[in-house]
Amino acid sequence: MNENAHLLASDGDGFILDPEDLRAIEHERAHYEQPQAACIEALKIVQRRHGWVPDGAIVAIAETLGIGPAEVEGVATFYSLIFRQPVGRHVILICDSSSCFLVGYDTLREALSSHLGIGFGQTTADDRFTLLPVCCLGACDGGPALMIDDDTYGPVAAEDVAALLEDYP
């Protein structure tokens, strides 16, 4: 941490860690010898509440763990399931690995894309869905597979997409 570090914090986006999240992060911190080890959990805790991780949260996590924001940012941007920009209320992860590819991933992606009117990395205008690829959901026996928030589905047929999404308002 250096002389200018507090300026980064004070010109951030006014983010304040929720007290419950702060406690949860401190709890995680206590599990490890190195504060760095609690970084992923801290990011997940913040993302669980906010849906994504804004800059201010990176600074707040860094302060809580006593490490530099650059170190937290390195972890946050390494993991594809930590979102560093806003996402929709629900995130759809569609598996594009080889087994799903062989059993209709293409068709499923097309169906999702045209139904929602968005491509990968995009969010619907009503902020309801964000569509992302994922390399494997470990659901190879039921491909093509996808995941919406914490729920895994497969095999999913193109014509079932509309009905499936109904459950995620």
Binding site: M1, A62, G74, T77
Partner: peptide, 10 residues
């Protein structure tokens, strides 16, 4: 120990 530079992305 100035904590400014990081390695981001993957």
């Amino acid at each position: 120990v100035n904590d400014v530079i990081g390695l981001a992305n993957r």
